[in-house]
Design a protein around this nucleic acid. Structure first.
Lengths: 167, 167
DNA sequence: AAATATATATCAATATATTGATATAAGCAA
DNA sequence: TTGCTTATATCAATATATTGATATATATTT
């Protein structure tokens, strides 16, 4: 009666034994993601010790420092979609970054409702200085993976993000 | 003067161009991890809506529900090493779980200093009831990946965890 | 027995994170 | 112009998350 399941069906049919095996794999996958996330924030923030910056602040600065963004800035709306966190949360992070004079909020000349978040000169200097510790952190964290494996991991995380991002 | 770099050296030598390429890959990898983590907590907690449980509470219940743990329980120390979060944070999560009567703290008969955290009957019933929504969440999130790719992703995350977990 | 180490807990400060409700200003459309 | 939508901000409640300092009880070692 029901149509055959497509390969990307959200609930594929499996034999009971295969279902149990699959669940073990899925459960382990998300638990590893949970553990990696805990370690990323804990040890990433530790590596930023000299700057007193957190991984979230690092993520915002990194988003704003991208070549196509640095001069124009980014709206709060776009930052939310890029970083995937709530507006109220991002506002608080931006408040702290603004208090340290690393970012500034300027009116968008093309839309009076919108405000563009931009790196200040000081923020850009700080971001450049952070690159060294960030690279050291990346090198240490990725040391168990070959460069080819790193590329595969990026691709798989990309697809996982797509599956997680269903609203 | 310096010894040749081993393959797993934390700071491998690279040509400048390769270094820049590698940094782009590494940067994207950790940003995808950051995004997946944000989505895991946001949408995972949403899927637990009927229970009012968060992903952290889900992680604790899942750790305590494992076959070899369910009868004996787990010490706070072991839970910390398993979940990779701070003692003060875990204490607060356990307080909330205990207030809902999903877990209990019992004295360890083998070590008077230690207290074993155990699922209550109610906690176990809740965990079993959560399995359905969790499986639905896993199915949706993993729908862009084949089962073979899921296995590869687990292995790569495992290794990444090892690199991140250097103290 | 005394000193040391371990296991847990607690208190405080700070920074994320979510949802929900409300407010304000500006763009746009009927 | 009136009304609808969009973009941002703010306030509140709750739950994570970290570090650091302190306290208590038990175990182990000297």
């Amino acid at each position: 009666m029901s149509p055959p399941a497509a390969p990307s069906d959200a609930s594929p049919r499996r034999e009971p034994a295969a279902e149990a095996d699959w669940f073990e794999v899925a459960n382990r996958l998300f638990f590893r993601l949970y553990q990696c996330s805990n370690l990323l924030h804990k040890n990433g923030t530790r590596h930023m010790g000299d700057f007193g910056a957190t991984t979230q602040q690092w993520a915002v600065l990194g988003a704003l420092a991208r070549p196509l963004v640095a001069t124009k800035g980014m709206s709060v709306k776009d930052l939310i979609e890029f970083l995937l966190l709530s507006r109220q949360n991002l506002t608080a992070v931006l408040d702290r970054l603004e208090a340290r004079a690393w970012v500034e909020r300027v009116k968008d000349p093309e839309d009076g409702r919108s405000r563009l978040i931009r790196l200040t000169e000081d923020g850009n200097r700080t971001w450049q200085a952070m690159r060294g510790p960030i690279e050291a952190f990346y090198n240490q964290a990725l040391s168990p993976l070959t460069e080819a494996e790193q590329v595969v991991l990026v691709q798989l995380l990309d697809r996982l993000k797509g599956g997680l991002n269903v609203v």
